[in-house]
Design a protein around this nucleic acid. Structure first.
Length: 282
DNA sequence: CACTTGACCTGTCCGC
DNA sequence: TGCGGACAGGTCAAGT
């Protein structure tokens, strides 16, 4: 999503903002008037699962999509409707899940849609963003070049008694891992998600580190995971779900050994495993 | 500290 | 076809 928006947004001038659900964008209207209206977009960044849109006013919009958020850009001459591509989930905008609409001076628009209303958008001084509790505690980016398997292991073993899946999902340990990529990388490393961290060997940490990076890179290459309604800035679904090996594939064959994939609950989340490749050792 | 549950919301699917 | 319950890419807070 960041890659798509970074091609589309920089240089555009914010002309107006429409709000629907106040909790989706809790901000004083004076801040919006002063630092958002009339601002030019300079840069689109990401940290963990949070998108950061920097403005010429030294303020930034920060956005979390949570489960069902979308950020969809519509150019000034562009229309969805009859004949829209099959990899699009968007027919017409705004629709009933539109929470915030940014209108730009050239007539283009950015829609923040969020069916379940868990996502949010905030306007903050750019320099204050990293003082937010979330950014102060968030772990390293797994795709950074300096993220070694030794660093990965070092961070995980601080939670020796937790199950590995719970720790992978903890944003304070690692940035950006969610339920899909946790299940997929654990399958890749042949580790059961409920394995306590203290039972993992250095070889397993090394392999899981490699699988995590493989899964994340593949997911980005495929445009993300449209499990339900995720779309990118152009309204297109991501295709990673058709490359998933266990996630949402309960009852189907494991692509490695042919055993039937099962679904269970680990760390409070729906969890997909191959019972043969990922045995839970006691 | 680690784990569970509930909360925040809407929509879909499944069984009766 | 209707209705209740479970469940869904995520994070928080509170309770045990």
């Amino acid at each position: 999503m960041r890659i798509g928006l970074a091609e589309l947004l920089p240089g555009r001038i914010v002309k107006s903002v429409d709000f629907d659900w106040p909790k989706s964008f809790p901000n004083s209207s004076s801040n919006v008037q002063q630092f958002l209206i009339g601002a030019a977009i300079s840069k689109v960044r990401r940290r963990a699962k949070v998108l950061i849109i920097d403005l010429s006013t030294d303020y930034s919009l920060i956005i979390h999509l949570k489960m069902t958020g979308q950020l969809v850009f519509i150019g000034n001459a562009q229309r969805f409707g009859a004949g829209h591509p099959s990899d699009s989930l968007i027919a017409e905008l705004p629709d009933k899940s539109s929470r915030v609409t940014l209108r730009f001076a050239d007539g283009s628009q950015l829609f923040f849609n969020d069916q379940r209303k868990f996502g949010w958008m905030r306007l903050l001084p750019t320099l204050e963003i990293m003082n937010l509790d979330f950014f102060k505690k968030v772990g390293p980016e797994p795709l950074n070049a300096d993220f070694t398997w030794q660093m990965f292991r070092e961070r995980l073993v601080r939670r020796p008694n937790s199950v590995i899946k719970a720790v992978l999902l903890d944003q304070a340990v690692l940035a950006g891992i969610g339920n899909i990529y946790a299940d997929e990388s654990l399958w890749g490393a042949k580790i059961h998600p409920a394995t306590p961290v203290k039972k993992l060997t250095p070889q397993q940490f090394k392999l899981l580190h490699k699988e995590l990076i493989f899964v994340l890179k593949l997911a980005i290459e495929k445009g993300g995971s449209s499990d339900r309604n995720y779309v990118n800035a152009k309204g297109k679904k991501g295709s990673f779900m058709s490359f998933a090996r266990v996630f949402r594939r309960e009852g189907l064959a494991c692509p490695r050994c042919g055993s039937i994939i099962i679904k269970s609950r680990v760390a409070g989340r729906g969890t997909h495993t191959c019972p043969h490749c990922q045995p839970l050792e006691q």
